[in-house]
Amino acid sequence: FHTERLRGASDRLRESLAALDYSRTPSAPFFCNVTGAQMTDFSDLPDYLARQMISPVRFTDELAAMEAAGVDAYLELGPGKVLTGLVKKTIKGRKAANIDTPAALQKAAALFE
């Protein structure tokens, strides 16, 4: 993922997603690690998702944009804690937790009370 070696798969993903309806805009702010900024235009979501496969991740830029927008808590969903660790290193004093099991969900719920 995140490499030009996936260009063919990226193109096929774009073609497959083009037939779906993307007329709904998310109700919560959406930050994009392709650009490192908040995403407000969702008119070409298939292209964005295809670019996600081949573009470098701009996670620290994304965190800076989220911080500037007032985000003060971060949850990483799924296995691994790489992103949670990056949040803790990059933005001091913010709550961050990984949720990969039911027990981790309980622990995160207590952290964010």
Rank of each mutant, 00 (worst) to 15 (best):
R7Y: 00
E4D: 12
S16H: 08
F30R: 04
S10M: 02
S23C: 08
R51E: 10
L6Y: 11
D47M: 01
D44C: 04
T35L: 02
L49V: 03
V34Y: 03
Y48K: 06
Y22L: 06
F42Y: 09
R14I: 02
D21L: 09
T25L: 13
G8V: 01
R24E: 15
S23Q: 11
R14H: 11
R12D: 12
T25G: 07
Q38N: 05
F31G: 01
A28G: 03
E4G: 10
R7M: 08
A18Y: 05
L49Q: 05
S16Q: 15
F42P: 02
P29M: 14
C32M: 05
F42C: 09
L6T: 04
P46G: 08
Q38K: 14
R14A: 12
F42Q: 06
E4P: 09
A28C: 11
L13C: 06
E15L: 08
E4Q: 13
L20T: 03
A37R: 13
T3M: 02
Q52C: 09
F31V: 02
S43Q: 12
N33K: 07
P26R: 11
F42M: 09
Y48H: 13
R7W: 02
D47K: 10
T25R: 15
L6R: 12
T25A: 15
R24D: 12
E15A: 14
G36L: 08
G8I: 00
F31S: 04
E4Y: 04
V34G: 02
L49R: 04
D47Y: 04
Q52N: 15
R7V: 01
S10I: 00
C32Y: 01
T25N: 12
Y22H: 11
T25V: 15
L49F: 09
Y48W: 10
R14D: 04
P46A: 08
Q38F: 09
D21N: 15
R7N: 07
S27N: 03
L49P: 01
N33A: 10
D44Q: 13
A9P: 00
Q38M: 15
S10D: 03
Q38G: 07
R24V: 11
L45F: 05
F30Y: 15
L13S: 07
M39H: 08
V34P: 00
S10L: 01
V34E: 02
F42N: 08
S43P: 02
D11P: 00
P46E: 07
T3A: 11
S16Y: 04
L13K: 07
L49G: 06
L13E: 10
R5T: 05
A50T: 05
D21V: 07
A37L: 12
A28L: 14
E15H: 10
S43H: 04
R5Y: 06
L45P: 00
R7T: 07
D44Y: 02
L17Q: 08
G8D: 14
R14W: 00
E15P: 00
V34S: 03
A19K: 15
S27G: 09
M39L: 15
